[in-house]
Each structure stands twice: as C-alpha cells, then as structure tokens.
C-alpha cells in the first residue's frame, strides 16, 4: 500500500526553533461525485465507485515565524490545496495542524479563533475574491467588523490605514473594484487580507497575472510588509526567479507530496532530488536565447492513481528497480535539507 509510506512523521527540520505553523501528515482527498447514471451503475455493481483523488498526501513541514517558505511544483500537484488547508479554506482529510507548536485538539476557543484568522490567502486573481458591487473600502473592512475586531465606526479609519500601508490612496475607498488596475486590485486583496491582522500570508500565484513592472512593485510590498509586520509567508509560484528572490526556504511538491525542502539558495545552487533538478533545468531565463523545447519524457502520473513506489519513477532519468516498489521517505540529506529519493540511501 502506498498510503503506508505517507504515515505522518515529525517534520524533519531540527534547526527550526519555534515553528509558527506546522503540518504533520496532512492529507486532502477529493472524490468526484458520480452523476445519476453512474450512481445507478455503481449501485448495480456495473461500475466501481469513483476513484479517490489524492490532492495532498501526507505532507509535513514547519515554518518559523517571519520565515518565507516557497512552494513550487507542477500544475495540479496540490500546491493550492495545501495552501487552502493551511488557511483553513479546506477541511483536511487527515493529519495534524499545529499552531505555535500546539495541536488542534488542544486549542481553546480563543486560540481556535486566532488560528482561523492567523493565516490569510492572497490569490492570483483578486477580482475573483472581490464582490464587483461592493465598494473597496467596505470589502477591506468587512472581515474585521464581522469578527468583532473593530466597530463599524472605527472601520473607515482602519481601512484608510491599510490602504496607505499597501500603497493605495485612501480617498479611493468609495470606488468599485473595476475602477482599479490589476496591480491596484492586488493591493486591495492584500489590504483585505491584512485587515484581520494575520501573522501569515499564503500567496497563491499572487504575482503571476501582473506584468513585470507591477510585479516588482507587489514583490517589494511583500518584502516591506514582512519587515514591518514580521509576517510568515507560504509563497506558491511557478516563477522560479520570484521564488529565488523572496523566499528563505523552498519546498518542491510532486503529486501531492513534498519531495525536497531546504534553504532556497542551496537548493537553487545544488538540487538534490531528480525532479528538482529537472524543474530548475527547464525554467527559461532571460539571456538564454532561443531554445528548442522537448516533449515530456515518461508519463505524467495522475493523482487518481498514483504510481506505486516513487511517484516520479515514470519520468525519472535515474529510476531503478527499488523505485517502482518502495516509496522513498523525506529524509535529511544535509543540515536543514531533506529529500525523498532512494539514491540518497545508496551513497
């Protein structure tokens, strides 16, 4: 059973002093709802029940307060799902979430409430989370009022302060989202997330839709906020240049699991896992000139039916017999660095 290999284990970073946020063996499974015909067929035993999609499968890591952890991996590997689990948007299927070192089961009501507001999300498309008919001031001030953090009367003052902090003119408070540019909307999204005084932000492709000059402004804003507020970041991005620039550590995901994690400069300089190596080699960089792209080699595995053994073995240039049978566990390869690959046991 492949599931056994993902048995929760303590996150393998001894050097992280006081984890701000930690997950242990966190798992999220989706089941596609069968339609009427399929339901009947399943009841009659003509069709097997719809398969379980393992979007996130036994993931453990810890982030220190004020740390920026990058999360990269191919589309559909479970990054957003993991981010949403951390932000409490999704219910997890299994596993543990620790807040300041304490398991959920031991939280009192006050801590549970704080934990819920503690992690806020920033999305790629801020429009999708903004009500087009709501003035941006009301949108930014909505959550803190609803959660009783400020009174209705104090709201505008809070909103004005937040807008200034993210580089928006507070006199725009009464405008509607469509009256702003993409970069400004992203600032609105950030102000809205900051309104409940979170200590951590999950940025899910937060700068992907912005063009480079605006992207530079928003990245600078993220770095300013981190300095000013001591924010913890989970930074999901396909842009490896962005990840290299603003994260301290990076986790590489493949098919619902973390395959490598460690300090960003070290991983970019010398990736340990074959998948990380392939990923870094593939990223186009300015100044490299024309290039002939190659087709994917091997089969992209599906989270509906993960391959046995190492999930990467269908594409790994270095796969050997053991890889097809046994799933590698995420193990220390150097101080502060871990990777999940059988090659590391050979040396």
């Amino acid at each position: 059973m492949t599931a056994l290999a993902s048995t929760p284990a303590a996150a393998p970073f001894a050097q992280v002093q006081a984890p701000h946020l930690e997950v242990r063996g966190v798992t999220k499974h989706f089941v596609r709802k069968p339609d009427v015909v399929e339901r009947a067929a399943i009841a009659l035993g003509l069709l097997p029940p719809p398969p379980v999609l393992r979007a996130v499968d036994g993931v453990s890591f810890a982030v220190a307060r004020g740390e920026a952890l990058g999360l990269v991996g191919e589309s559909g590997c479970g990054k957003s799902t993991l981010g949403r689990l951390l932000a409490g948007v999704h219910e997890k299927t299994a596993g543990d979430f620790l807040f300041e070192g304490m398991e959920e089961a031991r939280w009192d009501a006050a801590r549970a409430k704080r934990a819920r507001l503690e992690v806020q999300m920033i999305f790629q498309d801020p429009m999708s989370s903004l009500n087009p008919r709501k003035r941006v001031g009301a949108a930014i001030g909505e959550a803190p009022v609803a959660h009783g953090l400020v009174s209705r009367r104090e709201r505008d003052e809070l909103v004005a302060g937040l807008m200034r902090e993210v580089g928006l003119d507070p006199s725009y408070m009464r405008r509607y989202p469509h009256q702003f540019s993409g970069g400004q909307r992203q600032r609105i999204g950030i102000a809205r997330a900051l309104a409940v005084s979170p200590a951590a932000l999950v940025c899910d492709e937060a700068v992907a839709a912005l063009d480079v000059s605006i992207q530079a402004q928003i990245l600078n804003l993220f770095m300013d906020l981190r300095e000013r507020r001591g924010l913890t970041y989970l930074f999901i991005s396909h842009d490896l240049g962005v990840v290299e620039h603003i994260t301290d550590r990076v986790a590489i995901m493949y098919l619902g699991r973390i395959v490598e994690i460690g300090p960003t400069p070290e991983i970019f300089a010398a990736p340990a896992h074959p998948y990380t190596r392939a990923l870094l080699a593939e990223a186009p960089r300015v100044g490299q000139g024309r290039r002939v792209y190659a087709p994917l080699t091997g089969e992209i595995p599906s989270p509906l039916a993960p391959p046995p053994g190492c999930a990467f073995h269908t594409r790994c240039p270095r796969a050997f017999a053991r890889c097809r049978e046994e799933a590698p566990v995420l193990d220390d390869v150097a101080p502060g660095r871990a990777a999940a690959c059988h090659l590391d046991d050979q040396a």
């Binding site: 480079v212 992207q215 600078n220 620039h245 603003i246 300015v286």
Partner: peptide
Amino acid sequence: RGLLDSLPGGALAGARLRQIPGMT
C-alpha cells in the same frame, strides 16, 4: 530597458527590485 531591469532573479535575493516609476 525598464522592463528588463525590474525582473527578479538577477538582483540579490531579498533586495528591493527596481521599479519603473509612475503608472501605466
């Protein structure tokens, strides 16, 4: 020139990126 200068990755990690002043 401004576009190329504002790309991350080239500058030192963690340093503020160069921005094109002003707005579209």
